[in-house]
């Protein structure tokens, strides 16, 4: 019964009435996807490390704030968070700032996506970092403090370097996820890869949606796989000789 007319070269066709090609749209979308995901990852790593560390501190107040952050940002769906940053926040701030955010901020969708995705992923990274710190033998912290290192130096030089090594595998999956999650940015006007897919498969190239969706899916797989390879490379580079992770 199926009479679908397959055409895998559809992305190399000219966009009707323009001098553009569909593959150029996909490349441009991929560029924004990489920019959003990588920038958000930087935010997520830095902030996530701070928050995850804060959750393990003896100071109950600081740890409480960090816990609240994690619960808040981890339990609200990403698409809702982006919507709130993009549509709700400008209405909450003074009118002139709100108007600036709405009308004059450069690339508002991209910047909001980077920040929103970064804050969301930071909560997830924080949990990994916290788990990593707690997985270290208790004596490690004492071994730093007993030599006169401050608590901050103990975290910086003793606990975090090992915690990072312990959590590289779960961090790898967060890193892969951030590319997938960046697709949500399309919902707040970012013209990234998923947006371009929706755009092309909508009214622009309505006849060969299956091929375009499949090609975009393959691009996401390729990106996630590359992310995985990069993390594996880093894991090998920082591997401690003779140390079996998960051991004592």
């Amino acid at each position: 019964m199926s009479q679908y007319q397959w055409d895998w070269l559809v992305i190399f066709e000219n966009v009707t009435d323009t001098d553009e090609f569909y593959y150029q749209w996909l490349i441009s979308g991929l560029g924004w996807t990489l920019l959003i995901a990588l920038s958000a990852w930087v935010i997520a790593l830095i902030l996530g490390t701070i928050i995850g560390t804060a959750r393990t501190l003896p100071n109950k107040f600081v740890a409480g704030i960090a816990t609240a952050y994690v619960e808040l940002f981890r339990n609200i769906p990403l698409i809702v968070q982006l919507f709130m940053w993009f549509f709700v926040l400008p209405e909450m701030v003074p009118t002139n700032i709100g108007n600036w955010m709405k009308q004059d901020m450069p690339h508002p969708g991209i910047i909001t996506s980077i920040i929103g995705l970064g804050l969301f992923t930071a909560a997830r990274v924080a949990e990994q970092i916290r788990t990593g710190i707690l997985a270290l033998p208790r004596g490690q912290k004492n071994a730093g403090l007993a030599l006169g290192l401050t608590l901050a130096q103990t975290y910086r030089h003793v606990l975090l370097p090992m915690a990072f090594r312990v959590v590289i595998p779960p961090l790898t999956s967060e890193f892969m996820s951030i590319f997938k999650n960046s697709a949500v940015a399309y919902s707040i006007t970012a013209t990234e890869l998923f947006f371009q897919m929706k755009q092309i498969t909508g009214d622009y190239k309505p006849a060969n949606q299956i091929e375009v969706v499949t090609i975009v899916g393959l691009i996401y797989i390729l990106v996630a796989f590359s992310a995985n390879r990069i993390m594996t490379f880093i894991e090998r580079r920082v591997q401690v000789p003779g140390y079996i992770s998960g051991g004592k």
Partner: peptide
């Protein structure tokens, strides 16, 4: 310490 607690990295 009893368990040495060297910094493994």
């Amino acid at each position: 310490f009893q368990h040495f607690n060297l910094y493994p990295h």
